[in-house]
Write a protein that binds this DNA or RNA. Structure first.
Length: 636
RNA sequence: GCCGUUGUGGCUCAGGGGUAGAGCAGCUCACUCGUAAUGAGCAGGUCGUCGGUUCGAUUCCGACCAACGGCUCCA
């Protein structure tokens, strides 16, 4: 029999008999590797261990340590789940079941939705199937054969998928009596699946289209071993503990009320204080960067929204009101009044760029099912600005915004990623406008030296945009900042400036937010810090705590001094045990507890206890004021 | 908007066809006690809303509202 030559990742080569598989290659290298092998990579393409090699292939063995391992394990686990579901619910129709970032899911078409008890049964069945270590085999068929096969076993969704694929041949993976259309690759046998858990049941539309039938999706996750699975499940628990809705209630920051309406947060004193600190910070930072602060009204005539195109494209998300037979739209965006400010006088190229900043509160009628704590609400305040500039200035302005975002995210300690979104199907504006705007954003992204991704077709209807997603301490991503180019609104509103040659020219408008919305950003902050905010943004920075009633007059005096100095301080002079008061302040995550007993009264000091349990040296109240002031200056 | 789950005093939750219970918080009293819960007593709910079934519903059924997990959508 002829020999073939295979190249390994270290560039060494190996001779094998013709017809050898990836597994044979692993076995020829060593028994240990053969045992650890999960899949292979031939010429960069992920394949099964059973794949045959041909002469000249370069091959890599995928083991648990390979970055691709997790996806393969999860994908095979989703098949295992489908197998279990088919055994328990033979009438269920299988659809698709991919690996995702945090695990996997599989969508089924069933008459009756799954119950939590079903989930337990399915998981138990999966354990049995895994321990029986069934071989997972790949077979190739012509599309026509595959279709008749799936017709015979009554799987219409698979037939639809094959028809849409429009290819000659398809692959089918089988394990036991279960067979599924799939590109693969998969683990060699079900016994290789060692650590998984089914997590939740949800409705999901076939092919993600809400006009299609709703399927039942089961989410699960799988890891290389039990230890990693446990670590992940612990992280889920930690995320639950940090949930901003829970902490928001515990720290008395905000609430929602049926009587007020869904999606309308009510800001309690401490939450409002947190907002105020952020808003003051933003005003200062914007003034530093030559923005002008402006203010527009909450409602504007409907005719204006018609002119802007919002009425046409965004009406379903808007609230309207009518007074004296005049219809008004409650603003879902702040751009219109900013444009009217621009239009209020004749502008020269010497005036540009103009940067109008507004902490603009907007209302958007989001669909009922999408609301989520502070992350998705119907009334929120954007740190919104519109930059009007010449085409020549666009590049520098966008770069300026990106550096602004970077400065702010560094202060809060967030990592972030950038994405460019291009023209969507439903849009206004000419092709050339879109090209020019997209080009400007792209060049700024390239110049930033940071990695970025491209989301084709995900732009706003009036222009392309850069979205900035920050990562919190649990590695979750949140859309906050966005920079949107707009060639359309200046056109619609006939915005002009007089250029150096005396000609009237059209400015470009850039819509941008840094934090995004104060509401969402606070939600992210709460979860990131688990409610233990840095001193500079803590709504309550310190609390004066007395040991007994004897110290009340002095404690009041200290409280007054701190208040007058602008420290956000509270006092707890209740007739309670010190340990009880410390406990309450601790649960409120107040950075400093200023303990006052007889000793402090005598010496005219306070003893600050940080919320991590450590005491600072006893110090004079004015020293504490100085200390807090300095810390806040450096955003600690 | 769609699928599923849930909805009991301020909070966390138990209960269940015959007109409601705990802990915490609140209030009162006693204790004046130095770094995560002092003790005793009191008070507090038309069991999300509106209909239906029933001699009788908070408990069963339906609609609506809201929250939660997703889908779709988005700052």
């Amino acid at each position: 029999m002829a020999n073939i030559s295979i190249t390994l990742p270290d560039n060494s080569s190996r001779e094998l008999q013709e017809g050898a598989t990836v597994y044979d290659l692993a076995a020829s290298i060593g028994a240990g590797l053969a045992k650890a092998a999960l899949a292979g990579k031939i010429n960069g393409q992920l394949v099964d261990l059973s794949s045959r090699l041909t002469d000249g292939d370069s091959v890599e063995i995928v083991t648990e340590k390979s970055p691709e391992a997790l996806d393969i394990i999860r994908h095979s686990t989703s098949h295992l789940m489908a197998q279990a579901v088919k055994e328990l619910f033979p009438q269920a129709k299988v659809t698709i079941g991919p690996a995702i970032e945090t695990g996997f899911y599989y969508d089924f078409d069933v008459e009756k939705p799954f119950t939590p008890e079903d989930l337990e049964r399915i998981e138990a069945k999966m354990l049995v199937l895994a321990s029986s270590d069934q071989k997972i085999e790949r077979h190739e068929y012509s599309s026509a054969d595959a279709i008749s096969m799936f017709e015979a076993i009554g799987e219409p969704y698979k037939i639809e998928l094959i028809n849409d694929l429009g290819v000659e041949r398809v692959s089918v993976y089988s394990q036991g009596t279960f067979a599924d259309l799939c590109r693969g690759p998969h683990l060699p046998s079900t016994g290789r699946i060692k650590a998984f858990k089914l997590l939740s049941i949800a409705g999901a539309y076939w092919r993600g289209n809400e006009k299609n039938r709703m399927l039942q999706r089961i989410y699960g996750t799988a890891f290389i071993d039990k230890k990693e699975l446990e670590a992940y499940l612990n992280r889920l628990e930690e995320a639950k503990r940090r949930d901003h809705r829970k902490i928001g209630k515990e720290l008395d920051l905000f609430s929602f009320s049926d009587e007020v309406g869904a999606g309308f947060p009510i800001w309690h004193p401490k939450g409002a204080m947190l907002r105020m600190v952020l808003e003051d910070f933003e005003r200062k930072e914007h003034l530093k960067r030559d923005y002008d602060i402006v203010v527009g009204p909450q409602i504007l005539k409907s005719e204006l929204w018609q002119r802007s195109g919002h009425y046409e494209n965004y009406r379903d998300n808007m609230y309207f009101t009518e007074v004296d037979e005049q219809s008004y739209g409650i603003k879902p965006m702040n751009c219109l009044s900013h444009m009217m400010i621009y239009k209020s006088q004749l502008r020269s190229y010497r005036d540009l760029p103009l940067r109008f900043f507004e902490l603009g509160t907007v209302h958007r009628h989001e669909r009922a099912g999408v609301l989520h704590g502070l992350m998705r609400v119907r009334c929120f305040t954007q740190d919104d600005a519109h930059i009007l500039c010449t085409p020549e200035q666009l590049d520098a302005e966008i770069k300026g915004v990106i550096s602004f975002v970077n400065d702010v995210m560094t202060i809060f300690g967030f990592e972030y990623e950038m994405e460019l979104s291009t023209r969507p199907e439903k849009s206004i504006g000419s092709d050339s406008d879109w090209e020019q705007a997209t080009e400007a954003l792209l060049s700024a992204l390239k110049d930033s030296g940071r990695p970025y991704e491209i989301n084709a077709g995900d732009g706003a209807f009036y222009g392309p945009k850069i979205d900035i997603k920050l990562r919190d301490c649990l590695d979750r991503r949140w859309q906050c900042a966005t920079i949107q180019c707009d060639f359309t609104l200046p056109e619609r509103f006939d915005l002009t400036y007089v250029a150096s040659d005396g000609e009237r020219k059209r400015p470009i408008m850039v819509h941008r937010v840094i934090l995004g919305s104060i509401e969402r950003f606070i939600g992210v902050l709460i979860e990131h810090f688990a409610g233990s905010f840095p001193l500079w943004i803590s709504p309550v920075q310190a609390i004066v705590v007395t040991v007994t009633d004897n110290q009340i007059p002095y404690a009041q005096d200290v409280y007054r001094q701190l208040r007058n100095a602008g420290i956000r301080v509270e006092r707890d002079v209740r007739n309670e045990k010190l340990s009880f008061k410390i406990r309450e302040a601790q649960l409120q995550k107040i950075p400093y507890m200023l303990v006052i007993g007889d000793k402090e009264v005598e010496q005219g000091t306070v003893t600050p206890r940080y919320r991590d349990g450590k005491n600072l040296q006893a110090m004079k109240p004015e020293e504490f004021i100085e200390f807090v002031t300095q810390e806040c200056k450096t955003f600690k």
